[in-house]
């Protein structure tokens, strides 16, 4: 059927073209549309879809309760929470503020639910990440190869360098870190273990001796201060990486948008 299939694709292509040309054509109506109305319309359409979402949610959990599926008891809590919120949003507001602004009135029932149930749940869920990040880094920051080593070094330096503890790490620890890193890189080249360890210790001692000679304890050079190393990592290699990713993402989006506007990528419309 033409109308069922092709119409949607035509709408997609022409909307893409229209939205894009709004930036270049000197018609105020079109400009107004791309600047203001087009995103607003998205919100409105998405708002209508929200009805579908809520119906889906109700259907899913009611089914679960009715059919007594596994863990059905918990679905009652979901349904209760949802219905209470809807009642406080549309039926009972407990304050004199008009409908709508009452959502943000500190004395309304809706705000009470928001403040004492929704907020703590959301922020605790967010804070749970602190624990996950710990177990993730414990497992993930392992020296499997050179790339993983870089990930680890820049991560650890950042963690230390950004908090006060980084500033009190003395220069000689950093010297030993540098030497260890250097030896870790050339480890595969030196076969003899004894030679490796002796030279490792010798180089360390040499560097420390040099440090005392140059009086690094009184005036530590910047490259031996964790916070400064951290600043440099942020300013240089991390910036380069961010920039490349930014450009890459933009190119990906440009190509994807081009495919959509020219009607080549249409599987999203079920075609």
């Amino acid at each position: 059927m033409f109308i069922k299939r092709q119409l949607a694709i035509i709408v997609m292509m022409s909307m893409g073209f229209l939205a894009l040309s709004g930036y270049f054509l000197n018609f105020s109506v079109l400009r107004e549309f791309t600047d203001r109305d087009a995103p607003q319309w998205y919100m409105i359409i998405a708002g209508f879809a929200a009805f579908l979402g809520c119906l889906n949610l109700l259907q899913l959990h009611i089914q679960k309760v009715v059919n007594k599926q596994k863990n059905w008891q918990y679905s009652i809590f979901t349904l209760l929470g949802f219905i209470i919120m809807i009642v406080f949003a549309f039926v009972y507001k407990n304050v004199d503020t008009p409908w709508g602004p009452h959502l943000k009135d500190e004395n309304s029932s809706f705000y009470w639910m928001y403040n004492f149930i929704y907020l703590p749940l959301a922020s605790t869920m967010f804070a749970l990440l602190a624990f996950f990040v710990a177990s993730a880094s414990y497992r993930a920051f392992r020296i499997r190869n050179f790339e993983a080593t870089l990930l680890l070094i820049s991560g650890v330096l950042l963690m230390l360098g950004r908090v006060p503890i980084g500033a009190i790490i003395p220069w000689w620890v950093v010297v030993i870190m540098y030497v260890s890193f250097l030896f870790a890189m050339i480890a595969s080249k030196i076969k003899n273990r004894k030679v490796f360890f002796i030279s490792f210790i010798c180089v360390n001692l040499l560097c420390l001796f040099l440090g005392f000679q140059l009086e690094w304890n009184t005036s530590t050079p910047l490259f031996l201060l964790i916070p400064s190393i951290q600043e440099w990592i942020m300013a240089v290699p991390a910036t380069a990486g961010s920039r490349a990713i930014m450009i890459g993402i933009a190119l990906g989006i440009v190509a994807q948008s081009f495919r959509i506007i020219t009607g080549r990528e249409r599987s999203i419309l079920g075609d």
């Binding site: 414990y138 920051f141 392992r142 680890l152 650890v156 230390l160 950004r162 908090v163 006060p164 503890i165």
Partner: peptide
Amino acid sequence: RMSAQSVAHLLMVIFIILGNLSYY
């Protein structure tokens, strides 16, 4: 809050080091 932050970071780094040793 900075002291709590510092201690947590330090602990994290210690975990990472220990994790690597056990991995080794």
